[in-house]
Write a protein that binds this DNA or RNA. Structure first.
Length: 492
RNA sequence: CGGGAUGUGGCGCAGUUGGCAGCGCACUUGGUUUGGGACCAAGGGGUCCCCCGUUCGAGUCGGGGUAUCCCGACCA
């Protein structure tokens, strides 16, 4: 059988879709722009969810849940916010169906019109701040450090599996603070949590920085983000953390009594990451054989494939595999023995590679007799024969090395594709080749918009933890003075 | 919302000047196989996206609708 995947170089979009579909992660649903996340894909998301949730709790946050439906009027309380989301909201207008008068199926009952339409949440700032109004009276009620795991709906024009679907899963943190300083500190703290998660779990190097005014969240005073590079050189915004100032507190009249008897508006932040991280994971590490999963997020760490001719060989090999599996599981390694007897080993190898399982062990009669096992790495596609004795510990070390290697590979790929550019000619050339460009910019939204019009490139961020270049320079486009370089790239 | 393409079995597709709806994969059964995507044989599975029209006859031609994908614009 021929290879199933489209190559990366041939058609990057098709390659991405192939992996999502054929690795069994997700598929398009019957509903426009929505996706079905299949069990294997969801298992990866659960790993992400679990790790992030732990990090949120370690930083003092609690989970809560707020309604899916938001009264339309809530969205108009904060002018910039509504402008940012109004175009893409799904709206509930009726609450009942009836049998169609012509007898064919059902129609919306015109008598069941809602007095006030309900918006399906595109994000929850409004309904949460409407709730916080009741929770916050005194400085003693602050801070509120709440996170919610939920689905949200944004009726995007064009959708792509995981990267931009009409409905997606995410977490959104919404915190309330007594002071501006404390809220800003929270904004930084959480973007750093995201950066740590990306690097340590997803093996994904990210650039942490501020969004420019043009790219900022609707209703925020400052937006911090993590930006990742995909293998086609395009940028993917992988997470955001917003300093909302007192905008929502003022819109929803959330004030607290200070210790000295005054009355102040509350300071807010919000921060979120979504199932888009799945897209980032796929596009950052996969190759032409399929998905490559970092061990910390792989639902299955090790797959064992027995190779046998007779039933006796089969049972002897599987019995040995069960022993090794037990030892490995004691070290926190998740093992699957693929003893399907209707498929040949080569087919299984290809299938598990497509699914990105970090390590594969093949064992046949020869190995069994010699006390050896063939251990194959997904990240390097290399294999070697290793003794069964102490294999569990070997695997533990190998998985850690694979995690590290995937990160290093992604990091060096990125570093090779981030360059300083000082002329407009070079800018136009390099942006087409898929580079992140470190450039001077005059700081105006007009210039940013003009550059986007001409090249499709946007300012991904003004970096704060890596690629920070503070120096005198001249704007790449207008030649006006600039104090630092910013990151330009084409983005998803 | 603009431009382009495509809707035929679970998936991928072919279907000529309009004339019995096919192929590959997958599936089921039996057998031989099994160290990198096995082979043989026999089976099962279709409202050809929907509606209207032209015609003796439409998967095929015409009109309308609708869905999906790709490229833009918008966005996480």
């Amino acid at each position: 059988m021929a290879k199933e995947l489209t190559g990366r170089a041939e058609n990057y979009s098709q390659w991405y879709n192939d992996i999502v579909n054929k690795a069994g992660l997700a598929e398009n649903s019957a509903v426009r722009g929505c996706m079905v996340i299949k069990p294997y894909g969801y298992a990866i998301w659960e790993k992400m969810h679990e790790a992030l949730d732990k990090m949120f709790k370690e930083t003092g946050h609690q989970n809560a849940y707020f309604p899916l439906f938001i009264p339309k009027s809530f969205l108009s309380r904060e002018a910039e916010h509504v402008e940012g989301f109004a175009k893409e909201c799904a709206v509930v207008t009726h609450h009942r169906l009836m049998v169609s008068p012509d007898g064919n199926g059902v129609v919306v009952d015109p008598d069941a019109k809602l007095e006030e339409e309900l918006v399906v949440r595109p994000t929850s700032e409004t309904i949460i701040w409407n709730t916080y109004k009741n929770w916050i009276k005194s400085y003693r009620d602050l801070p509120i450090l709440v996170n919610q795991w939920a689905n949200v709906v944004r009726w995007e024009m064009r959708t792509r599996l995981f990267l931009r679907t009409a409905e997606f899963l995410w977490q959104e943190g919404h915190t309330a603070h007594a002071t501006r300083e404390e809220a800003i500190e929270e904004t930084f703290k959480m973007v750093n949590v995201y950066a740590k998660f990306a690097r340590e779990y997803m093996a994904l190097p990210v650039i942490v920085g501020h969004k420019s005014e043009g790219e900022r969240f609707a209703g925020a005073l400052d937006t911090l983000c993590i930006e990742a590079m995909m293998q086609d050189g395009k940028a993917l915004q992988a997470g955001t953390s917003h300093f909302l100032g007192q905008n929502f507190a003022k819109a929803f009249e959330v004030q607290y009594a200070t210790a000295d008897g005054g009355l102040e508006y509350v300071w807010a932040t919000s921060w979120g990451v979504s199932t888009r991280l799945m897209g980032a994971l796929i596009m950052a590490h996969s190759d032409d054989n399929g998905l490559v999963l970092p061990p910390k997020l792989a639902p299955i760490h090790v797959v064992m494939v027995p190779i046998f001719k007779s039933a006796e060989e089969h049972s002897a090999i599987v019995a040995r595999m069960e022993e090794i599996k037990k030892e490995a599981e004691a070290l926190g390694i998740s093992v699957t023995i693929d003893d399907r007897d209707n498929l040949r080993p080569g087919f299984k190898f290809a299938e598990w590679e497509l699914k990105g399982v970090p390590v594969r062990i093949a064992m046949g009669p020869r190995d069994l007799a010699a006390g050896m096992a063939e251990v194959a790495r997904r990240d390097t596609l290399t294999k070697e024969s290793l003794p069964q004795e102490g294999l569990a510990q070997t695997l533990r070390n190998l998985l850690d090395e694979i995690q590290d290697n995937i990160y290093r590979k992604a990091l060096s790929f990125r570093d090779e594709h981030v360059i300083k550019v000082d002329t407009w000619e070079e800018f136009k050339e390099k942006i087409e080749e898929g580079y992140f460009l470190l450039c001077h910019w005059d700081g105006t939204a007009e210039t940013e918009a003009r550059i986007q019009e001409e090249t499709k490139a946007t300012i991904r961020c003004i970096p704060i933890d890596s690629y920070v270049v503070e120096e005198e320079g001249k704007c790449i486009y207008t030649g006006k003075p600039s104090q630092r370089r910013v990151v330009f790239a084409k983005a998803y």
